[in-house]
Computed example of a mutant assay.
Amino acid sequence: MIQAYQYNHQNELVRPIEVFERDDEGNYVIPDQCTTIAPPNNPSFYKAAFDVEKQHWYESATQEYIDSLKPAPLPPNDLELLKKQNAWLTKQLTQLLAMQKGGNPE
C-alpha cells in the first residue's frame, strides 16, 4: 500500500487515499487526478493545488480568502477599558492642574 493524494478538476487537494492495486509488473496503479507527491506540511497551505506539469503543490487561495479565515479582533475587555479610561482621566487631570497653575495644558 502507498499513499496518494487526490485533487479535483481545479487541481485542489481533495483528500489523501491509500492505493493497494498493482499492475502485472508489481507497480502501484495510481488513479487519475492523483499523485504520490505529498503536499508540504510546512508551510501549510490554505488551499493546496497541484501543478500537473511541474509536479508540485502550490497555494491557490487568494489573499482575500486567507484574510477571511482570520478571526475578527476581540473587543477590549473590562480591564483594557479601565486602563484607557484611567489614561484619559490622568491626561485630563494633568491638563487641568497645568491650567490652574498658569502653564501650558499640553
Rank of each mutant, 00 (worst) to 15 (best):
P76M: 14
D67R: 01
Y46I: 09
T94Y: 07
I37R: 09
M1P: 11
V14A: 12
W57L: 09
L81R: 11
P71R: 01
P16H: 08
A4P: 04
E25N: 02
K70Q: 11
I37H: 12
P31L: 15
S60I: 06
F20G: 10
K70Y: 05
Y65S: 05
D67S: 08
Q63I: 08
Q95P: 05
G103V: 02
D32Q: 06
S68A: 13
A61T: 10
L97H: 15
I2G: 01
E21P: 01
L79S: 03
Q33I: 02
E64M: 04
K47D: 00
Y65L: 13
Q33H: 03
L97N: 11
E59V: 00
N86Y: 10
W57E: 03
Y58D: 04
H56R: 15
V14L: 13
V14K: 03
A49Y: 00
P105Y: 09
E53V: 09
D67K: 11
Y46S: 01
L79Y: 14
P16Y: 02
D32S: 11
T90H: 04
L96Q: 13
V29H: 08
N41W: 03
N11L: 14
N104R: 04
N42C: 03
P40E: 05
Q3W: 02
T62V: 02
T90K: 11
E21V: 01
K84F: 06
D51T: 11
L82V: 04
M1H: 10
G102H: 12
V52H: 02
H56P: 00
Q6R: 10
L82I: 14
E18Q: 12
D51Y: 10
P73T: 10
V29M: 09
N86V: 14
H9R: 03
W57F: 09
N77Y: 14
A87V: 07
Q55Y: 00
M99I: 00
Q33P: 03
D32L: 14
F45L: 12
M99R: 07
P75D: 09
Q85K: 13
A38H: 03
L96E: 13
Y46G: 05
V29A: 04
Q10F: 07
P16W: 02
P16I: 04
K47V: 04
L93R: 12
E53H: 07
P73Y: 05
D67Y: 04
Q10L: 11
A4V: 03
K91F: 01
F20T: 14
N41L: 06
N86A: 05
N77F: 15
Q63P: 01
Q3T: 05
N42A: 08
Y65K: 07
P76H: 13
Y5S: 02
E59Q: 08
S44G: 14
Q85L: 09
M1S: 09
T94P: 13
L97F: 10
E64P: 02
N42G: 00
Q92I: 00
A49L: 00
Y5D: 00
N77L: 15
V29D: 08
N41M: 03
I37W: 02
T94N: 13
N8M: 08
F50S: 00
